[in-house]
Computed example of a mutant assay.
Amino acid sequence: MYSLRRLRLLREVAARGSLAAAAAALGQDPSSVSHQLKILETEVGAALLERVGRGVRLTEEAQILVTRTEAVLRELEAAEAEIAEVRHRVGGTVRIAAFQTALHTIVPGTLARLARDHPELTVITTHIRTEDAVPALLARDFDLVLQEDYPSRPARRDDGVETEVLGDDELCLITPAEPASSESAAGGPGASGPGLAECAHHAWAMEPADTRAGHWSRAECRRAGFEPEVRTDSSDNVLLVRLVSLGLASALVPRMSLRAAASTGIDSARITMSDLPEPASRRISTAIRRGSARTPRIIALRSALAEEFARL
Score class of each variant (00 low, 15 high):
residue 14 A to I: 03
residue 19 L to W: 05
residue 19 L to H: 09
residue 22 A to I: 01
residue 22 A to P: 13
residue 27 G to P: 15
residue 31 S to N: 10
residue 33 V to A: 09
residue 36 Q to Y: 15
residue 46 A to V: 02
residue 57 R to H: 08
residue 64 I to M: 14
residue 68 R to G: 04
residue 71 A to G: 07
residue 74 R to I: 05
residue 85 E to A: 15
residue 96 I to Q: 10
residue 97 A to D: 10
residue 99 F to M: 08
residue 103 L to K: 12
residue 110 T to L: 11
residue 111 L to E: 05
residue 118 H to T: 07
residue 139 A to R: 14
residue 140 R to I: 08
residue 145 V to I: 06
residue 146 L to G: 11
residue 148 E to C: 07
residue 150 Y to T: 04
residue 152 S to Y: 01
residue 160 G to P: 08
residue 162 E to W: 09
residue 163 T to E: 15
residue 164 E to T: 09
residue 166 L to T: 02
residue 166 L to C: 03
residue 167 G to F: 02
residue 173 L to G: 00
residue 176 P to W: 03
residue 180 A to I: 11
residue 183 E to V: 14
residue 185 A to V: 01
residue 199 C to D: 01
residue 204 W to Q: 11
residue 207 E to W: 03
residue 207 E to Q: 10
residue 213 A to I: 00
residue 215 H to C: 07
residue 216 W to T: 00
residue 219 A to N: 06
residue 219 A to Y: 00
residue 228 P to F: 01
residue 230 V to F: 00
residue 230 V to G: 00
residue 240 L to C: 09
residue 247 G to E: 02
residue 249 A to T: 00
residue 250 S to D: 02
residue 253 V to D: 04
residue 253 V to W: 03
residue 259 R to V: 09
residue 259 R to H: 13
residue 261 A to Q: 02
residue 268 S to E: 05
residue 273 M to H: 05
residue 274 S to E: 00
residue 275 D to S: 01
residue 275 D to G: 00
residue 287 A to P: 12
residue 289 R to A: 12
residue 297 R to P: 11
residue 297 R to T: 11
residue 298 I to C: 07
residue 299 I to W: 06
residue 305 L to T: 02
residue 306 A to F: 06
residue 306 A to H: 13
residue 307 E to W: 11
residue 310 A to K: 14
